[in-house]
Amino acid sequence: MRWSNRLIAAGLLLISLFAVAEQETLIFDNDTLRERYLDLTQQLRCPKCENQNIAGSNSPIAEDMRNKTYELLHLGYSDDEVVSYMVDRYTEFVIYQPRLNWGTVWLWLGPVLALLLGALMVTWLARRSGTEPPDELSDDERSRLQTLLDKDS
C-alpha cells in the first residue's frame, strides 16, 4: 500500500471514531445505571412516531424523554417508577408491554377462552356423532350377511 493510501485510511478511521464518540456523550454514575438507561429507552415508545422506541427516534420529544429518563434514574427512581412517570404524562401509548387492567385482561384471557371454546366444540361434535346408535340387523339381514361373508372366503 502506498503512503498516501495509508494516510487516507487513517483519516477515515479517525473520522469514524469521532462519529461513534458523538453518540455517547452521556456520563453515568455506574454501569448498572447505564444498562438500565439503555434498557428503558428501548422499552419506551416515542409518542410522536408510531413504531420507534425513544432510543431510536430523533424527534424532539423522544430526546426530551431520554433526558428525563436519565435524570430520573440519577434521582434514584426505580425502573417501574420511571415507566409510571412517563405513563402519567404520555398515557399507556408509550409502553409496548400493555399493563394488566379490565380493558387489557382479554389479551391474555382471549386466547385461553378461544382454546377452551374450541375444545368444547370438538368434544361436543365428537360425542354427538359417537352416540348415534347403530341400526340393529334383522334376522333376515343377518343370514344374508353371513352368506355374503361365506361366499367371499
Partner: peptide, 12 residues
C-alpha cells in the same frame, strides 16, 4: 426547556 410541556404530555 419544555418542562411544563413535559408535565402536560405535550408532544409538539
Amino acid at each position: 426547556n419544555g418542562d411544563l410541556g413535559f408535565e402536560l404530555g405535550v408532544t409538539g
